[in-house]
Amino acid sequence: MQMQLAAKFKDYRHVWVFVEIERGCVHPVSWELMGEGRKLADDLGVDLCAVVLGPRTDDTKAAISQTYHYGADICYICEDPLLADYRNEPYTRALTGLVDKYQPEILLLGATPLGRDLAGSVATMLQTGLTADSTELRIADDKSLAATRPTFGGTLLCTIHTLNHRPQMATVRPRVMAMPEPDRSRTGRMVWHSLGMAEGDIVTKVLEFVSDARIEKANLAYADIVVAGGMGLRQPGNLALVQRLAEVVGGEWGVSRPLVQKGWAPAERQIGQTGTTIRPRLYIAAGISGAIQHRVGVEGSDLIVAINTDPDARIFDVAHLGVVADALTILPALADAFARRLPGRALAS
């Protein structure tokens, strides 16, 4: 089903990445997307451009310089006090305004709460296609974007194209693409854009921001080491064995989905297709069978150790190191072994 691109879209060029900044912090997924965007731009022989929206602060300024370190040739900037907290209305206005004016052929955003909120409304404003939660982006032979995403909980993959509309939009989950090495010597061009809105035009007001720092929240996606337990733990109380090992190695703990469904652990601890994608240096999976929906969330880990009583468990297909044994005895033994062998850790046991 090859179609001619309508004349009005012929001038759409370059690859754009939306840089997500919330309360002064750049979400790392933005740099992961820059790494990927750089490859797409090079394949097409076009520029990689970053979009930075925010108030005029030192944080925003720092983010702008970083876009070049992570590969941007051009940074499109809209600085306005109205962009201080994320709100859909001014962000949609700024991003669609930039797209209409500078006409990129590809626009990528992180599949985070902010990115999904913004991408959905921007795509609708622009009346273009948006592929959600892509895990692979590639330039097809006809120079269009081929975005691949898991379907039906990861049992199949599908490749989606945006026909006859521009820009071609896609969101990508954090930790799916590798983090590129920054090159701090790189710089590039800045293009400024004005928002053209007044506070009175914006209906939604932010009354307060309650930081998770005050309610202690898991940061599984960016943890270096993750230890997780599944139904093989048998009792909610045994989750303590997972937590203790995680603590000894200074990592985060997580669970497979059934434990969340049973109420043994909060949803934010779930790893996998409908939970968090992780990409740690070390992942230890105890009593987890390795269902596809779990595997798609852990495949990016550098090293995977699986503990399971069933030698045929599918988790061993994805693990690098396998132990066929009872997790209830191996987890404490591992915690003790790490405590013994890591200097300064002996006391923690």
């Binding site: 089903m1 273009t128 049992t155 199949l156 989606i160 194209h161 026909l163 995977i304 061993f316 690098h320």
Partner: peptide, 17 residues
């Protein structure tokens, strides 16, 4: 505007643990 061009099974990893 979006079309699904291809549906396929994920490729399994060659080596086991």
């Amino acid at each position: 505007p979006t079309v699904v061009k291809r549906v396929f099974a994920p490729r399994p990893r060659a080596d086991k643990a």
